[in-house]
Design a binder for these strands. Structure first.
Lengths: 225, 225
DNA sequence: TGTACATCAGTGAACGCGCGTTCACTGATGTAC
DNA sequence: TGTACATCAGTGAACGCGCGTTCACTGATGTAC
């Protein structure tokens, strides 16, 4: 490992500070508040100076989404790993509750990842964070593998993209045709209530959304057993 | 019914045109593209002239959200009514598929209703469309009533807001404590996959999202039966 | 250890843009006699 | 039917703002001899 020069270190620190301030601005005033000028102002710099670190505003935002998504995925993986094995159903519940907890702790981050909330932002063609998205899918797939019982009524291979199929195969080679659909359906299920909650659509109606969510997860694993 | 004066008619037409253009701008370039100046430009008017029709930008946006949400709810209600009665399970499927179809046909509208995508927009304290949201919940509640079997493990009255409880009571007076939670859980379930699809998170992986969604609905009603 | 040069982070000013909102006004449309 | 007045939709110009991006430049930090 080559040791960093002083200049390299300062440069890396400044880059981190830009991202940290962008995240703080987002957390305070929503994703729309991320602007190069605001960040520069916050850092006591000139707006143009940011261009020494990021070639473009959209590039910065793509980086933020990628890092946030990666942080979320890391959190999900460690939540499952950092707990004694208590059966496949419990692991799904653990995973999903970690998802909700991260989302509740980082609502703007959740929106940045899953909505399209920065006006004028154009993500790269593969999407801003394809790697993290795949990791999330793969992680969920591996949790769901022991709970998968093919019963033939859930769709065909041809419905699903070859890329994802290969990704899933990397986790588990003897994957069934409808397994991908199964995984995405569960993903949709754990996503739905969290999305409603984050966007305030349960807000006034439910006093304890965590409890509601847990009830739904109980119902989910009951259906899988 | 009092007949409209010429002036009143022109005024109403212009108001409708403003809203229609705002919806078109949103559909073309996303919710962030809604601006008074763009609308005025499109109408061949001066920006200031809009203030003869809406007191404020946020007021216009609130109106748009309310009307979109009302249109969605109307669509859901007529989808269920406009089909011969074929059992409670089939009605849920019909309702949910109408939800998805509306969302796919109006993705930006779906985002305007369920995300928070207009930067700087501050909704009124009760939310932009409380009436439509209640109607949606009430409608779903009435569909779910015949499928509700209390089994005591799903939560307590105290978790839910009195307002919603009363609303549900208006639909059905002998409502069970956990019924509200049950309704919201189902709402989250039908919402999840649609939200992922609209935001492009299934895009590259699933060839026929409608089929995936249908499979999930089949699984849902199977669990309810 | 000291000097000459290269690197490069950050400045400051500008360009051109779009935005919401206000306001004194013009001129057409309607109303009252 | 014609005139005098009131209404009111829309103008046009301005205010003040924030934005992304570019560019010639300064001045400090590093490197080579």
């Amino acid at each position: 490992v080559r040791t960093q020069s002083r200049r390299e270190r300062l440069r890396a620190e400044a880059t981190e500070e830009i991202k940290a301030i962008a995240l703080r601005l987002m957390a305070e005033d929503g994703p729309g508040a991320i602007s190069l000028r605001a960040i520069a102002r916050e850092m006591g710099m000139t707006a143009g100076a940011i261009y020494g670190y990021f070639p473009t505003r959209d590039d910065l935002i793509t980086t933020l989404i990628r890092e946030l998504y990666t942080a979320l995925v890391g959190r999900l993986e460690s939540a499952v790993v950092g707990r004694p094995y208590d059966g496949p159903a419990e692991r799904i519940v653990t995973w999903a509750e970690a998802l909700r907890e991260w989302a509740v702790a980082n609502p703007q981050g959740f929106q940045l990842i899953y909505d399209a909330p920065v006006p004028g932002y154009r993500p790269p063609p593969e999407g801003p964070a394809p790697e993290a998205e795949r990791r999330l899918c793969a992680g969920l797939s591996s949790l769901l593998t022991p709970l998968w019982r093919p019963d033939g009524e859930q769709g065909e291979w041809e419905d699903f993209d070859r890329g994802l199929a290969d990704q899933v195969r990397a986790v588990r080679t003897d994957v069934e045709p409808a397994f991908v659909g199964f995984v995405l359906r569960i993903w949709g299920r754990v996503h739905g209530l969290v999305s409603l909650e984050i966007h305030g659509h349960l807000g006034r109606q439910v006093r304890d959304p965590a409890k509601l969510y847990r009830a739904d997860l109980r119902d989910l694993v009951k259906g899988l057993a």
